[in-house]
Design a protein around this nucleic acid. Structure first.
Lengths: 127, 127
DNA sequence: ACTCGATGTTACATTTCCTTACACAAAAAT
DNA sequence: ATTTTTGTGTAAGGAAATGTAACATCGAGT
């Protein structure tokens, strides 16, 4: 359930996404222009990307490499069936709420798996 | 193996960490001053935090709530045994390499679990 | 009352990111 | 063979996020 929530949480600034995807800012913004991704915005209008966004970007890159154009890629994403539950969830949960959820889950999770590690473990959090 | 790598990858700007932890920038920087965390820096000297860092920060917060002071918390972290393999890994892998690894893993992972979802799945990546 | 530890606040500098506009090469369309 | 479209580069100017540094505050303990 919350898996999807986690992956769609806007956490990353564009600089990191650039490093993760090897795309330029220009490219990333261009793909957003074509509505292939919809990064969240901070109060100050800066883009914040989710892991999902990164994933989509990598996929776009792949398709471009294979010779597809924007139209083709756009169509592919359109055809992808989107579970209704997911849509509902996305519409009802705000970014701020997402982070609240995340924080709570982190707090809960930590109590368990703290063993011989120097620091607590956040990995459980991601799936 | 790469689990630890992932969690120690510097991805988050301070603003997001603030939201995730409910700490102020002042507090976060203060804890860094006391070497409880060691966030990476961008070329432009901005702090970039890993999930590990967030985890540690939440722990610090917890301890402070319980009345501990910096010295106490510091000591606790010191006493935490750190597996040797981890140390070696942390010393030999640069941030840039980390992101490279991450990217590659994302690419690999996506091919599998793409089913009825609108977008590829990055979750496998985290643990 | 005084000190110290943890945090708030303010000021100023720098970096990062934004939008907008123009350029351009390669591909597609005419 | 031109002309258009597409995907991307690049530059300008401005706004937002973050940095450091200094001083202020406030509670706990002495």
């Amino acid at each position: 359930m919350t898996n999807r929530v986690r992956r769609s949480m806007p956490l990353l600034p564009i600089s990191i996404v650039m490093q993760l995807t090897d795309l330029t800012a220009r490219q990333i913004r261009y793909y957003e222009e074509h509505e292939l991704i919809r990064p969240a915005r901070t109060e100050g209008n800066k883009r914040m990307f989710s892991l999902n966004d990164v994933d989509v970007l990598l996929e776009i890159k792949e398709y471009l490499d294979q010779g597809l154009n924007m139209a083709g890629i756009k169509k592919i994403f359109e055809l992808r069936v989107q579970p209704k539950a997911e849509v509902a969830e996305q519409k009802t949960v705000s970014d701020t709420e997402l982070r609240q959820i995340l924080r709570e889950e982190i707090l809960q999770s930590r109590s368990y798996e703290r063993g011989g590690y120097r620091q607590g473990d956040l990995s459980r959090f991601f799936h």
